[in-house]
């Protein structure tokens, strides 16, 4: 039951993009087409799941036993940067078509604050190992959901009669704001 709550919370209620406002850069930058938005979502989910596991290991096996909590941010940066490198090499070797599809998005994830936020929030909530795994994966799903939704809306917006000064980023930000309000409505689900 606890795990289901974490899952629903990360996907809908405390969605990384629409609740914490983390990872706005790819959310606006890669949301012009559903296809690429979905690829980006998958790449983020992938990296988030792995980051959650490795950062939990480092946090609970090295940092906390030695009383080095204050090194969390630095070591998480290290974890994320190395992991993305590793994942990139791995995908390139195993599946060149997937590597092509993800393209520039993969290295871009290194500097994505949503990943960093995930590692820090998981540490802050003192999740157990299983909880962290679920949290990482479902946060990625939440990100994918948000980015695919806005990509669908933006594809429609291309055909809509948008006032000239609001075209592009302007209307996208307004849509993002309305989406965040709508997702806030899910807060009642968990209380």
């Amino acid at each position: 039951m606890e795990l289901a709550a974490i899952f629903i919370s990360a996907v809908l209620v405390q969605n990384f993009v629409l609740y914490y406002f983390l990872g706005i850069c790819p959310f606006l930058g890669v949301s012009k087409k559903i296809d690429s938005a979905f690829s980006m979502g998958l790449a983020v989910t992938f990296v988030m799941s792995i980051t959650a596991v490795v950062s939990w290991l480092i946090n609970n096996l090295i940092l906390i036993p030695f009383g080095l909590d204050y090194l969390q941010i630095v070591s998480f940066i290290l974890v994320i940067a190395s992991l993305v490198q590793l994942v990139e090499m791995f995908i390139r070797k195993i599946s060149p078509p997937l590597y092509q599809a993800l393209g520039i998005y993969l290295p871009l994830i290194t500097t994505n604050c949503a990943i960093m936020g995930l590692a820090l929030i998981a540490a802050l909530n003192e999740y157990s190992f299983v909880e962290t795994v679920i949290f990482g994966f479902s946060s990625g799903i939440g990100f994918t959901l948000a980015i695919v939704l806005i990509a669908g809306i933006r594809e429609q917006l291309d055909l809509a009669d948008v006032p000239e000064p609001l075209k592009g980023a302007g209307i996208a930000l307004i849509v993002a704001g309305i989406m965040a309000l709508a997702f806030n409505g899910f807060i009642g689900m968990l209380t």
């Binding site: 090295i62 940092l63 290290l78 590793l86």
Partner: peptide, 18 residues
């Protein structure tokens, strides 16, 4: 000292892995 050693070790570990 501990923090320096830990970070160096972690960095070294990851770079060797990479």
């Amino acid at each position: 000292l501990i923090s320096i050693i830990t970070m160096t070790a972690l960095g070294f570990l990851f770079s060797v892995g990479l």
